[in-house]
């Protein structure tokens, strides 16, 4: 599989991803990684119903994701990986996933979180997770839509 986008977005499957990035990247599949959703049939179906018919969807736990990343599953497919928060990416990396770049597309307002962009708010735990990913040579790029300006997260955190 070729990973065309690895994205942190707390709305998970929504218009910006299916329409915005979908028409730009032409993915064959969206792989949503969430232990919580993967075990809830109703929620799984709901997320699946939000994806246009020409894109396949897989909703997998972290364990299952590690398996499909190491085996030759979804061969020849262009895949978007979607997660809710940086902690999921950290988990994948700790379990041996080899990732090079992560897109931060939506971490919306929460109480006690610091604003670094209109669509990116972080707390201390998020920052620690981002530092962990940087130490593993993963580039962290904030960009909500393909036409939007790319911003380097590390530079924004220093400000």
């Amino acid at each position: 599989m070729s990973l065309v986008l690895i994205r942190i977005d707390d709305r998970l499957i929504h218009g910006q991803v299916t329409v915005g990035w979908g028409s730009f990247l032409n993915p064959d599949r969206i792989l949503l990684v969430s232990d919580e959703i993967a075990e809830n049939e109703w929620e799984k179906e709901l997320y699946q119903s939000c994806v246009p018919f020409n894109i396949a969807v897989s909703i997998l736990s972290t364990d299952e994701t590690i398996r499909v990343l190491t085996e030759k599953t979804f061969e020849n497919e262009r895949v978007i990986i979607l997660v809710e928060s940086p902690s999921v990416i950290v988990e994948l990396v700790k379990r041996g996933a080899s990732l090079h770049q992560v897109n931060i597309g939506g971490m919306h307002y929460r109480e006690n979180k610091k604003k670094i962009l209109p669509y990116v708010y972080v707390d201390e735990q998020d920052i620690q997770n981002f530092y962990f990913l940087e130490e593993h040579n993963i580039e962290l790029i904030c960009q909500d839509l393909p036409q939007a300006k790319k911003e380097n997260l590390s530079e924004l955190l220093i400000k």
């Binding site: 709305r11 499957i13 929504h14 218009g15 299916t18 709901l46 997320y47 119903s49 939000c50 994806v51």
Partner: peptide, 13 residues
């Protein structure tokens, strides 16, 4: 507004 976005998702929930 449209079927499939975060609004629709929230409404379904």
């Amino acid at each position: 507004d449209f079927c499939g976005g975060s609004c629709w998702h929230a409404a379904r929930v």
